[in-house]
């Protein structure tokens, strides 16, 4: 059975059985290589649902707020974010039905020749080289938090990538060179806050940039405050960010956030042996206090 019929059939049944009242998934967009998130609330609409290699949005951000019996189609990135949301008590597992999908990797429009795309695109028409970098490094081991799973198991057909390769290159630069690099990147920032708005981890009710009393970050769009904002945001999500890559994808001026985020991830991994997005029962290392903490700070 092709994946779309499998998906639609399963969701139809979920509605019919009353397991869910709404379902968060993807539908076809305006162009062959575009999809968009959609939320359907009745079984008659299931035929809108699709899954292909352009379903890049992280759907977990639609889980905010009061959920009532919600189903969600979750690929690796979405699943990992759900783990983080569970850790931060942002979703109630009892209200959630997770339909996981084995994700073959998403196509990076910057890499693929999309203009020559046939009108009827099938799943998996794209080779490994066209995928997003994050997808190339994906290990495809889904965190076991889902209720059901669709799609064929992915055999990692590609040559394994060192997910920190580009970080290691950055680390070779001097501190000055790195600072120059980031200064240049952040000077492009237009403070649209797309990165924050798309980030599933940025679930604060009032973000630091919006606070007036005290004012943490000036709202002025100028190099120094932009640096401050961007670094602060990354530090805020450190240890909780699951590298879904959404912030980098949505950034209109193409700030390479993953270069920062992966560095943080690497630090946390090396310091605490912790990788976010695996087990909702685990607590992120920066959110725990252990008596036997090697650091003697508080005792």
């Amino acid at each position: 059975m092709d994946i779309n019929s499998e998906l639609q059939k399963k969701v139809y049944k979920l509605f019919e059985e009353g397991t869910i009242k709404r379902f968060i998934g993807y539908e076809k967009g305006s162009l062959p290589y575009k999809t968009r998130p959609c939320i359907i609330t009745k079984k008659e609409d299931v035929n809108r649902l699709i899954f292909d290699q352009f379903c890049v949005n992280n759907l977990s951000i639609y889980l905010r707020g009061d959920l009532e019996k919600t189903g969600i189609l979750a690929n690796m990135c979405t699943l990992k974010s759900i783990v983080a949301l569970l850790q931060g008590n942002q979703v109630k597992p009892e209200n959630l039905y997770i339909l996981a999908v084995n994700c073959p990797g998403m196509v990076d429009p910057d890499k693929a020749e999309l203009s020559s795309l046939p009108a009827q695109t099938k799943l998996m028409p794209f080779g490994y080289k066209n995928l997003y970098d994050k997808c190339k490094a994906c290990h495809h081991e889904l965190p076991k938090i889902y209720q059901d799973l669709i799609g064929e198991e992915i055999s990692v057909a590609c040559e394994p990538v060192d997910e920190y390769a580009f970080i290691k290159d950055m680390e070779k630069l001097t501190q000055d060179e790195r600072w120059k690099f980031w200064e240049k990147q952040f000077s492009k920032c237009i403070r649209c806050y797309a990165c924050r708005n798309v980030c599933p981890i940025c679930y604060c009710k009032e973000c630091m940039v919006d606070k007036a009393n005290p004012q943490w970050v000036s709202k002025l769009n100028q190099s120094s405050t932009n640096e401050y904002y961007n670094l602060m945001r990354v530090i805020h999500v450190m240890g909780r960010c699951t590298d879904c890559g959404e912030c980098e994808r949505v950034c209109p001026v193409k700030i390479p956030y993953r270069k920062l985020i992966k560095k943080m991830e690497k630090e946390i991994k090396e310091l605490y042996g912790y990788v976010p997005g695996k087990d909702p029962k685990e607590l992120p290392p920066l959110s725990t206090f252990k008596e036997e903490d090697p650091e003697k700070g508080i005792k």
């Binding site: 931060g88 008590n89 942002q90 009710k205 959110s287 206090f289």
Partner: peptide, 15 residues
């Protein structure tokens, strides 16, 4: 409490 998200980071970290 008006802006607390209930993530309970604080609860887990309080020594």
């Amino acid at each position: 409490t008006s802006i607390c998200t209930g993530c309970l980071n604080c609860k887990n970290i309080c020594p």
